[in-house]
Amino acid sequence: MQSLTNRSKQVSKKEMTFMEKLYLPAILGGMRITLSHLFKKKVTVSYPEQKRPISEVYRGQHVLKRDESGAERCTACGLCSVACPAEAITMTAAERKKGEEGLYREEKYAAVYEINMLRCIFCGLCEEACPKEAIFLTDRIVPTEFERGDFVYGKDKLVEPMDKNLRVDVSVRQTKGVLEFKQHPQYAHNKLWDPNKAIKSKKSAH
């Protein structure tokens, strides 16, 4: 059988020779190996100062997008909640009043929208399920908290700011294949969303 590395050894159960029984040469050999590691380059990444490069499509903390005019895209359809395998998402829907057109894009919106970050497994299925392109995962890392309750993120933490310069850029997450797929007539109602016009803002976490 071809081995994956050239380090494989045939196992044998032959009697140990005297040198092997002495055990000391083997110990010294082992100690030589560990000593050589003393001078090797350390693999530790000193986290807050150094960061590992992460993928552009890293699945971190969610964002609830607004459209160009600043209205929330989410229509509280609940599809993300249904898709979520960890049952992390809950929401309460409400009807848009007259005069709130600038705040909510659809006639129905999520008055309460909560993601429990302790339940979430960052699979990204909510992002995939959303017909309104309202929810995206970003490369931001969910910070630690002292209380369990603080991990339940409400709209205050999830919805991106109104200020166009502070919007969260998710255009890199839209791969070519995804964009093509979105040309499908089924998504015609999403016309307003033009990824090329998506607001480019500086990434928040990095």
């Binding site: 590691h37 380059k41 350390k42 693999v43 530790t44 000193s46």
Partner: peptide
């Protein structure tokens, strides 16, 4: 830590 290619308490 050093024998295991780590940095240890720092």
């Amino acid at each position: 830590a050093f024998l295991q290619d780590r940095l240890g308490p720092n």
